[in-house]
């Protein structure tokens, strides 16, 4: 921020404040044991809800672990598919390319419940319902459009030039991918991975239907509390989810940046 632009400066902080307000509310909510209508601040503050979540509920820790593992797994599977798919869409010309491009976006356009219900029947038949893998698979479907979109753009920007250069210098396909392509697309992979991770973390309806109550993620714990008007407890779970997701992503980026020289992707 330059000094010459006080208006932009002000706007920037206003937007930050607007974005943060609900989060602040969420935090306040978790501590306020008694907060009747007209009072501006909670009248009784305690850690009762935290105690409920972390001590009384034995499922909490397992749910956090499931959520994070599921999100990492979904990001991984999504990337495995999205990297070659993005490369193909960006660099190669083939019959029906426009159709494929549209098909990739379909999970975003068609209401997710419709998609899930259709797949549900098939998943029951092959016995994937109620399994970690089944839930991961269905979540991958919803993470895919974002990841493929990002990877396509990344490959369009990176282009074929360096790979062609590497091949005339005598390198084979594997060497080119590891030594030339991968370092170039790493920021894109990280962005696509983070987005897939986030999509997975936020899923409720997919986990609910395909998981059949056997795969318990943090969102699965939150919704019943909202339905029974226990907003305070739901707030604690939400905070827990946000914090654990942020720690996971932060650590991932730290690890990746050890090996690849690149600009900041997640944190500006």
């Amino acid at each position: 921020m330059r000094k010459k632009q006080p208006i932009y400066n002000a706007l920037f902080y206003v937007f930050v404040a607007i974005s943060c307000a609900p989060l602040i509310m969420l935090v306040v909510l978790t501590f306020s044991t008694f907060w009747p209508y007209p009072s501006l601040l909670p009248e009784v503050v305690s850690l009762d809800y935290y105690a409920h979540v972390f001590i009384e509920n034995r499922q909490t820790l397992m749910a956090v672990v499931t959520s994070i593992l599921l999100a990492f797994f979904v990001a991984f599977v999504t990337l495995i598919i999205a990297i070659p798919a993005g490369k193909a869409i960006a660099c190669y010309s083939f019959k029906g390319k426009g159709f494929v491009k549209m098909l990739v976006l379909v999970p975003l356009i068609v209401p997710s419940v419709a998609v899930i219900m259709g797949i549900h029947v098939t998943m029951i038949r092959i016995g994937l319902t109620g399994t970690f893998f089944g839930v991961a698979l269905i979540q991958t479907l919803f993470a895919m459009p974002y990841a493929i979109r990002i990877m396509t753009n990344v490959f369009e920007i990176v282009g074929k030039g360096l790979e062609q250069q590497a091949s005339v210098l005598g390198a084979g396909t594997a060497t080119i991918f590891i030594k030339v392509t991968l370092p170039r697309i790493m920021p894109g992979i990280l962005s696509a991975g983070v987005l897939s991770f986030t999509v997975s973390i936020a899923q409720y309806i997919t986990t609910f239907i395909i998981g059949g109550g056997r795969i318990i993620t943090v969102t699965m714990l939150i919704i019943p509390h909202i339905q029974s008007r226990e907003h305070h407890i739901a707030a604690v779970y939400s905070i827990l989810l946000i914090v654990s997701a942020m720690i996971s992503l932060y650590l991932t980026e730290k690890i990746v940046r050890r090996y690849y020289d690149m600009d900041n992707v997640v944190y500006v």
Binding site: G161, L162, Q164, Q165, S167, V168, L169, G170, K179, D261
Partner: peptide, 18 residues
């Protein structure tokens, strides 16, 4: 291409930036 021994120097030099 990798076995032809015909090496191109491209217009934009195509140096590996990393």
């Amino acid at each position: 291409a990798r076995k032809r021994g015909a090496v191109i120097v491209f217009q934009d030099f195509a140096l590996f930036p990393h």
